[in-house]
Amino acid sequence: MTAFTPLSAAIGGALIGAAAVLLMASLGRIAGISGIAGGLFSAPKADRGWRWAFLGGLAFAPVLVWLVRGEAPAFELEASWTMLAFAGLLVGFSTRLGSGCTSGHGVCGISRWSPRSIAATAAFMATGMATVALARLLAEQIR
């Protein structure tokens, strides 16, 4: 259970949007994490450097926030290793199959009014909510 934090959510969302606009304005690219990561090894050589730089910045950002705030960002996750491995495999495979994830479809795609991204976002929101509901029901049954 987490508290509703509208202000930090609004600020964070605006920063994510600004990052997407910056990447489009400078390099003409969609800020979709799964798409960027998917080309790290397979894209043409000249098309790889920016990918490493973007994901490097993404990985380093929390360290910066950590240094400024003096405390590590919150992280609560209870899952078995089997679950982590299964979910990780599924997320990696399916975001490539579906050509995008929360960032590429959910933010960049919808911003361009792409029908594919709108449909994809509706689909992963629906199955995500159904999965959590089902997981909660199962947990309550066991208890």
């Binding site: 599924l90 399916s94 449909a119 689909a123 992963f124 909510m129 999965t131 997981a135």
Partner: peptide, 10 residues
């Protein structure tokens, strides 16, 4: 792809 992604995400 999107449907399966939601499952892993959830």
């Amino acid at each position: 792809g999107a449907g399966l992604f939601g499952v892993g995400w959830g």
